[in-house]
Computed example of a mutant assay.
Amino acid sequence: MAAATLTTTLLAFGAPAPAQAAVPATVPLTFTNNSGRSGPVYIYDLGTQLSSGRQGWADAGGAFHAWPAGGNPPTPAPDASIVGPADGQTKTIRLPKFSGRLYFSYGRKLDFRVTTGGLVQPAVQNPSDPNHDILFNWSEYTLNDSGLWINSTQVDMFSAPYAVGVKAADGSTKSTGHLKAGGYTGFFDALRSRPGGWAGLVQTRSDGTVLRALAPGHGIEAGALPAGVMDDYVNRVWQKYSSSTLTVTPFGDQPNTKYYGRVSGGVMNFTNGSGAVVTSFQKPDSDSIFGCYKKLDAPNDLVRGPISRTLCAGFNRSTLLTNPNQPDAGSAGFYADAVTNQYARLIHERMADGKAYAFAFDDVGNHESLVHDGNPQQAYVTLDPFS
């Protein structure tokens, strides 16, 4: 297991909207099991308690339990599992004021450990991870005084299908994450058929069960995807903007805030309207693009971070050559180049609403699978059929 503590990025989606009414201490969440799979389901509500900043888990009633002190090597965590609904059944739990993850697993409980820095997450790109052969997935959420944000995510892997939803005070419900008919098996079939090593992302258990497809950054880490899979596109981008300008308008509500990128000496420098250089980027490798980090690091500031987010989205969607004004307003031209993030392309193609979190900044342009309400009455996770 990778020694990484549990974190979530949901609060980075934007400033919370003012609450319409006082958000209660807990909100009901109903799991509906439409998976068609026999055997037990286990649920875990893990994260950071917002009132104290402590890491821990919540039980089915929403009560918080802090993790005990961990060790090095990591020590077994307390059993935080909640028995989930059988196929065709539902189960309602309570979500506390948390920023964390809702894990669910089929057939077996997940193996969590605690280190001196907190909870260790499953890292299934590592074949020795104790959760490698377990079929599982997770949703990320934040519930605070300004409401509930909950998503379906494929940032780390595409696995057991599910959707999320939230019910507002007026009785309306917003949901996202459902696949098109045949979308689950269709995704794996399409990924396996892509040339260039993309089939290596698929992980299958010895009994033939398809467990997941790793996100491409994890695939590179595991040696399952060539490290240079995006190099040709990056080289063409660097060549184009050696003699032309890339304009980035990172804030949709600030159309006059623009930055101008040109490549000089192998470095893409961005200037503001006064011509002053505000940040620079080395030519990114594929892993930097897929992870939106390293050479495309995006600090939580008002200049480099927003520019990097936009660049990252443009590289993953392969729009930087076709549109010198970023980000793109619509998705019609996404993933059209032969060199692109095929994993993200195939996920978006198979989502019923076209929305997904297939890479870290898939929310650039609001293409993410996220629902939010400032006065949530009920939340939902639906475990969808695999066929």
Rank of each mutant, 00 (worst) to 15 (best):
A2Q: 11
A2S: 10
T7V: 04
T8S: 15
L10C: 08
A17L: 14
A25Q: 14
A25H: 06
P28R: 10
L29P: 01
L29R: 06
F31L: 09
N33W: 02
N34I: 00
S38Y: 02
P40S: 08
V41Q: 07
Y44E: 04
D45K: 05
S51D: 14
Q55T: 04
A58W: 15
G61R: 09
G62A: 07
G62W: 10
H65I: 00
G71K: 05
G71F: 08
P73F: 14
P74N: 13
T75E: 10
A77K: 04
A77F: 01
P78M: 10
P78T: 03
D79Y: 08
I82S: 08
G84H: 07
D87R: 01
D87H: 10
D87S: 15
Q89W: 04
K91L: 12
I93V: 11
I93A: 10
F98C: 11
F98N: 15
S99T: 08
F112P: 01
F112Q: 00
T116M: 04
G118L: 01
Q125M: 05
S128C: 01
Y141G: 02
T142K: 14
D145K: 06
G147Y: 04
G147H: 10
W149S: 11
T153F: 07
D156I: 00
S159E: 00
P161F: 02
Y162R: 04
G165C: 08
A168H: 14
D170C: 11
S172P: 00
T173S: 09
S175L: 09
S175Q: 15
T176H: 13
L179K: 04
G182H: 05
F188K: 06
A190V: 03
R194H: 11
G196N: 08
G200M: 01
L201E: 11
L201N: 07
V202Q: 15
G208K: 03
R212K: 09
L214P: 02
P216Y: 14
G217S: 08
G223S: 07
P226E: 12
Y233W: 09
R236H: 12
S243Y: 06
S244R: 03
S244G: 03
L246I: 02
T247Y: 09
P250T: 03
K258M: 09
V267W: 11
V267G: 08
M268S: 10
N272T: 00
T279Y: 13
S280P: 02
K283C: 12
K283S: 13
I289Y: 11
G291I: 05
K294G: 07
K294S: 12
K294C: 05
L296F: 05
L296V: 01
D297K: 06
D301Q: 03
D301R: 04
D301Y: 03
L302H: 12
R304N: 02
P306D: 07
I307N: 05
L311Y: 03
A313Y: 03
G314W: 06
G314R: 02
F315T: 01
N316K: 02
R317Y: 05
T319R: 08
T322S: 15
P324Y: 07
D328F: 00
G330D: 15
A338E: 13
I347K: 06
H348G: 08
H348C: 11
E349S: 12
R350L: 09
R350Y: 06
D353Q: 09
F359I: 03
A360G: 09
A360R: 15
D362Y: 06
V364R: 07
V364G: 07
N366H: 15
S369P: 03
N375R: 09
Q378L: 13
V381A: 15
D384F: 04
P385C: 12
P385Y: 13
